[in-house]
């Protein structure tokens, strides 16, 4: 009895002095191993009477259990301590720059194109296309701009050598896509056409190549009120200002009648011209074999650089086409920035 009590307190004392997992293991072997002190006591049991054995056996088992638990607790303790020490020695400088992966950027114009397609897509427009090198017919004549028209003078046109008598131009606007679409498809039509356009000008506010987005609706009932509604909605969504003020005022384009220029009220309180639009001119419909007595609709065109510069506060137009990585990284967009 006393022997057991003594052993227990002795082991517990030794247990407290154990400092490493190895010492703990040694202690376990000394205590519970084949020749361990508890095992030896167990062996002594055999020499006792059955009655004694019964009593002692219970006590001895309890001692063994208690020591196993105590060893386990101490082991956890020691493991915890050694882990703490290890973790302490494994500290990394988390402020180091991450492994190099710099995602690319989307050009701001391309981002603006995404947004325009998204917004007009929600209104039921689909994207139409046409080539950059256009026949004079599509770029001018079919749009009610005959050769002697003063409007040709105002657009400095790049010409290419004529093909089979037909003068070729770099399209000066995206409007020839209207003609291509109307000649190919039957109303009702609802298209937008973003793309490159070219004019022979190069200064602080003009580049020889820039981008426009064209819009065209042809059906039996769309009128100027719808044109206003459509463009108001676009501008408010695009500029992310539900209260944006728009001003429609009479303008002149040979291919629309009535025609309008649209201004938006900018933050500085000034009206800024951002696009031209109007109801498709009856001559244009007729040129595309569409009966203006039955069909009507609207068209609009706006410069993508212009609306990008306004929306993002980009100042120098020429840098859009310079491939300057500093500029592109600053004004470009991550792919997930898209709607």
């Amino acid at each position: 009895m006393d022997k057991m009590g003594e052993l227990k307190s002795q082991v517990l004392t030794e247990l407290e002095q154990v400092a490493t997992l190895q010492e703990l293991e040694d202690l376990r072997v000394q205590t519970l191993g084949k020749k361990g002190r508890v095992t030896l006591l167990m062996k002594e049991l055999a020499k006792k009477t059955p009655e004694e054995r019964k009593v002692m056996g219970v006590e001895l088992n309890a001692l063994k259990e208690a020591l196993i638990t105590a060893l386990e607790v101490r082991k956890n303790q020691l493991e915890e301590e050694s882990l703490t020490i290890r973790l302490g020695s494994e500290t990394l400088d988390v402020s180091l720059p991450p492994r190099p992966f710099v995602p690319g950027k989307i050009h701001p114009l391309s981002h603006v194109m995404d947004q325009a397609i998204y917004i007009f897509g929600q209104m039921g427009f689909v994207v139409g296309e046409g080539p950059d090198i256009e026949e004079d017919f599509y770029n001018f004549t079919a749009l009610n701009i005959p050769p002697e028209h003063p409007a040709r003078q105002e657009q400095d046109t790049f010409y290419l050598p004529p093909m089979e008598e037909q003068p070729l131009v770099l399209r000066t606007h995206t409007s020839p896509v209207q003609i291509r679409t109307m000649l190919k498809e039957k109303p009702p039509l609802r298209i937008i056409a973003p793309g490159r356009v070219y004019r022979s000008e190069y200064d602080a506010t003009h580049t020889p190549m820039f981008h426009q987005i064209e819009g065209l609706v042809v059906d039996k009932q769309t009128h100027m009120g719808h044109l206003k509604g459509c463009l108001e909605e676009f501008c408010r969504l695009f500029f992310e200002d539900p209260d944006l003020k728009l001003r429609f005022r009479p303008g002149y384009f040979p291919f629309t009648e009535p025609s309008a220029e649209v201004d938006i009220m900018w933050k500085n309180g000034a009206w800024l011209e951002i696009l031209g639009c109007g109801m498709v001119h009856p001559n244009v419909l007729r040129n595309c074999n569409i009966d203006p007595e039955i069909y009507q609709g609207f068209a609009f065109g706006m410069g993508l650089e212009r609306i990008a510069m306004l929306k993002y506060g980009i100042e120098d137009l020429r840098l859009f086409f310079e491939s300057d990585l500093r500029w592109l990284t600053h004004y470009g967009f991550a792919t997930e920035a898209r709607e």
């Binding site: 998204y118 897509g121 929600q122 209104m123 689909v126 994207v127 206003k228 509604g229 309008a260």
Partner: peptide, 24 residues
């Protein structure tokens, strides 16, 4: 309309239900 003022034209919501995605 230009004598009357384009601002007199009431803005009418233009929203056709899209029949297809804007891009093929």
């Amino acid at each position: 309309l230009r004598v009357e003022g384009y601002d007199k034209i009431p803005s009418t919501p233009y929203r056709e239900r899209p029949q297809q995605k804007p891009l093929t």
